[in-house]
Simulated scan of single mutants.
Amino acid sequence: MKKLLFILLLLPTICFGQTKQDLFYLIDKFPVDKAGNIDFCIIDSVKNVSKESLHIRAIQAINCFFKDSPSPIMPVYNETNDMIIYRGRFGRYERAKKTFSSVLNTYVYRFTLKIEYEDNWYKIDFYDISESIENITTDLSELLNKDYYNKARLTSSSLKAKYNSILFIYNYLTTKTNSIGEYMRQTEKKTGK
């Protein structure tokens, strides 16, 4: 009987799963530069590829990898700086259980993507990343602030929601950064007989 009571007391912890240590481990995985800014960035070189070809690849990559993005803003080409800036967003839904019902939370994540290029090199950079739920917008740097989690008394469900948000952002940006990088590195197909 004591074992059954012990298991029932641990059940909420087992169900929610994420702890503050799990959250801190995930926060430590994020790429951060020396100034403490989020640094989802790739700088790479490509052989024998002109600036014009990289410009076309950058536009094609944005059209390919962000066609499902609900952002109505089209990429902006800045001719003097040789870059494309794209402001986009993506979302996720999470069902939160309440005492006698459940609520569907909608999270919207906004970002800015900048692709710079010159002959034989390019740079992909994600920045201005934020999360919005209802009418509250939070910058990613605030979500990754460990001091906040140490000072705040968050419930296990709040920790789970923060963990899920940070994990979702990390997976999305890692996948998109790598996909765009691969697209920019692709070699042009040679036609021959």
Rank of each mutant, 00 (worst) to 15 (best):
41 C>F: 09
124 I>L: 08
184 M>F: 07
180 I>L: 10
72 P>F: 07
153 R>L: 08
80 T>V: 09
91 G>H: 11
144 L>C: 05
78 N>G: 09
1 M>I: 09
12 P>N: 01
105 N>I: 15
30 F>T: 03
60 Q>Y: 10
61 A>H: 02
173 L>T: 08
185 R>C: 12
152 A>V: 04
19 T>W: 05
170 Y>S: 11
57 R>H: 05
169 I>G: 01
56 I>Y: 10
140 L>K: 03
81 N>W: 07
34 K>R: 09
185 R>M: 11
2 K>F: 10
22 D>W: 05
17 G>K: 03
44 D>L: 05
40 F>A: 02
82 D>V: 04
145 N>V: 03
97 K>W: 09
23 L>K: 02
24 F>I: 01
60 Q>H: 15
46 V>Q: 00
59 I>F: 14
173 L>N: 06
130 S>N: 10
83 M>D: 10
158 S>W: 03
100 F>R: 11
26 L>P: 01
44 D>H: 14
106 T>R: 14
6 F>Q: 11
140 L>G: 05
122 Y>W: 02
16 F>I: 08
79 E>G: 09
99 T>Q: 13
120 N>S: 13
58 A>M: 04
164 N>V: 11
115 I>E: 00
81 N>H: 12
150 N>K: 15
61 A>M: 03
141 S>C: 09
56 I>H: 10
154 L>D: 01
111 F>D: 03
123 K>S: 14
133 I>G: 05
158 S>D: 08
9 L>F: 12
21 Q>H: 09
97 K>Q: 15
141 S>F: 11
107 Y>S: 14
188 E>V: 07
88 G>F: 06
162 K>D: 07
189 K>H: 05
175 T>A: 13
13 T>M: 12
57 R>C: 01
158 S>F: 06
91 G>P: 04
16 F>T: 11
128 D>Q: 12
126 F>L: 02
125 D>P: 00
17 G>E: 00
179 S>K: 11
5 L>F: 11
60 Q>E: 15
142 E>T: 13
66 F>W: 08
176 K>T: 08
29 K>P: 01
27 I>W: 00
54 L>K: 01
97 K>A: 14
135 N>A: 14
147 D>W: 02
106 T>P: 00
77 Y>M: 07
125 D>N: 13
69 S>T: 03
113 L>R: 02
72 P>N: 10
70 P>D: 03
116 E>C: 08
141 S>K: 15
78 N>A: 06
35 A>Y: 12
95 R>Y: 13
52 E>Y: 07
125 D>S: 11
25 Y>I: 08
167 L>R: 14
147 D>S: 13
11 L>A: 13
81 N>V: 08
32 V>T: 09
4 L>A: 11
33 D>A: 04
136 I>V: 15
119 D>K: 12
99 T>R: 13
186 Q>H: 09
57 R>L: 10
169 I>H: 00
